[in-house]
């Protein structure tokens, strides 16, 4: 796309401002509709649209790495997570409980006013910050050569701030463990039993099956590609993991159960692998007399790419486990199946 007329068309500041303004209004509107919706299903659908529009905003902000993550996660995985849990709620629990006019008015004012103040303060402070202080960006650009990767975001994530990334991987793992820990088990469980999936499984849709059969391998390929390309272009371990997990979610909603089950032993090992690989890389550096998580310049590229590979697989396993939810509690022997 390099010809003259096209570039003048694209560069026109008025056109871009108008586009940004429209995008911002649309995003704010979907958020408003989602937040004030009384039906959970409607709110979730609007949230998915919100995520897609937000991905466009990230592109406009020159952050394609974030845009990829937002599209795959904000719009895809989080939406699936919400929908999954909706299926577990009882029918009448998926709308906001009714309340009197006085109650709702009180709520609107008591919450609305402080919130408007908080938002206003955030905007004020953020706009005040604008005077350009020389940021850390210069440092990143100057030292990027030492990391062996040409995507600065990947350089920050896997080298300069790798502690953050290590902790991020650990947080995701902890979320899976905590989710598994919430499974009610055994006779200690009292209270009204709710049959989880009350709706019968819909019949398999041949067209959907046809489509998913062709899409899934392609999407998996995209996931691998995102990992591989992450060192030099937008992409990376997390985006790759999100795409792979989305493929799993797609297989799940179209009724094609994926093997092995998300909580099988190999999958559990894979979930831990990311944290283990990261920590052992750090410890290896310590043993070699360097700093924890340091990446020596000569091997930085290879280490980053392989570490990202392990991370991608491990994060994908964690996300898949989160989408699939905790395994069913084991049946007590006394209980009728």
């Amino acid at each position: 796309m390099s010809t003259l007329a096209m570039s003048t068309l694209a560069m026109s500041p008025l056109a871009t401002t108008a586009f940004d303004g429209m995008l911002a209004v649309l995003i704010a509107w979907t958020a408003w509709q989602s937040v004030t919706s009384r039906e959970v299903f409607r709110a979730v659908m609007l949230f998915v649209v919100f995520g897609l529009l937000l991905a466009l905003a990230w592109l406009r902000l020159g952050a394609p790495d974030v845009a990829l993550a937002e599209a795959a996660v904000g719009a895809g995985l989080t939406g699936v997570l919400f929908l999954e849990s909706l299926g577990h709620l009882r029918r009448n629990k998926t709308v906001e409980p009714p309340e009197t006019v006085a109650q709702s008015r009180l709520r609107r004012w008591a919450v609305g006013l402080p919130v408007v103040v908080a938002g206003g303060l955030l905007a004020m402070v953020a706009l005040r910050l604008e005077p350009r202080v020389p940021g850390i960006a210069g440092l990143v650009v100057r030292h990027q050569g030492e990391t062996g990767v040409s995507n600065p975001v990947t350089a920050v994530l896997l080298d300069f701030r790798s502690t953050d990334t290590l902790l991020e991987v650990v947080v995701l793992l902890l979320a899976v463990i905590a989710t598994y820990g919430l499974v009610p088990h055994g006779p200690a469980h009292h209270g009204p039993r709710v049959r989880p999936p009350a709706t019968p499984r819909p019949p398999r849709q041949p067209v959907l099956v046809w489509f998913v059969r062709r899409l899934a391998p392609l999407a998996l390929l995209v996931g691998v590609y995102l990992w591989w390309v992450g060192s030099s272009a937008p992409g990376g371990a997390f985006q790759a993991a999100a795409v792979v997990a989305a493929v799993f979610a797609l297989l799940r909603v179209s009724g094609m159960e994926a093997a092995p089950p998300p909580n099988a032993r190999p999958m559990r090992l894979l979930m831990v692998a990311g944290s283990v690989a990261f920590v052992s890389q750090g410890l290896a550096m310590l043993a070699a007399g360097r700093v924890f998580l340091d990446l020596p310049e000569t091997v930085a590229y290879g280490l980053i790419v392989s570490l990202e590979g392990v991370l991608a697989a491990s994060l994908a396993a964690c996300l898949i486990a989160l989408v699939a939810g905790a395994p069913r509690p084991p049946r007590q022997s006394g209980e009728r199946p």
Partner: peptide
């Protein structure tokens, strides 16, 4: 191609439902 097949699939799902 992806967008066309996806939209056809989704239309089929909606209409079916």
């Amino acid at each position: 191609a992806l967008a066309v097949t996806a939209s056809a699939t989704i239309a089929n799902l909606f209409a079916n439902l």
